[in-house]
Amino acid sequence: MESGSLTPEQRLEPPNTRFINTGIATIHDMETLRACVAYENANQQRVQILRRLEQRASKIRSRDD
């Protein structure tokens, strides 16, 4: 399942920072999530965003079990 056509940059660097949570919440597959983690690690390295991505990964994993 693909999480839409948003790039990691579009999800994590929206024009309005209030949309970051929405960008993360709409990730539905591990491939997209890994791409977002890689993007964040390579660019901003914001601990809070990486934590949110980690929480999203846990939800995806528990859903897939």
Rank of each mutant, 00 (worst) to 15 (best):
T7S: 14
P8M: 11
Y39Q: 03
P15N: 08
E9Y: 11
E40S: 10
Q44L: 01
I27S: 00
V47D: 04
R11Y: 05
D65P: 06
R18N: 14
A35M: 06
N21F: 05
S5F: 12
T7F: 09
V47H: 03
D29M: 05
P14V: 11
R63F: 10
V37S: 02
C36A: 14
K59S: 11
L53C: 06
C36F: 03
G4F: 04
A38Y: 05
Q10K: 13
G4N: 12
E31N: 08
D64A: 15
G4T: 11
Q45P: 00
D64E: 14
V47G: 02
K59C: 07
R63Q: 07
T32N: 03
I60H: 03
G4K: 11
I24E: 01
L50E: 02
D64S: 14
T17P: 05
R34F: 10
R63A: 05
L50V: 01
R51N: 09
Q48Y: 03
T26L: 03
T26K: 08
E31D: 13
D65F: 07
R34N: 13
E13N: 08
N16T: 12
R46H: 02
I20G: 02
F19P: 01
L50A: 03
T26P: 00
R46D: 04
D64N: 15
A57D: 01
S3T: 10
I27P: 01
E40D: 06
S62E: 07
D29S: 14
I49T: 15
V47K: 06
G4L: 02
E54N: 10
F19V: 04
E31S: 11
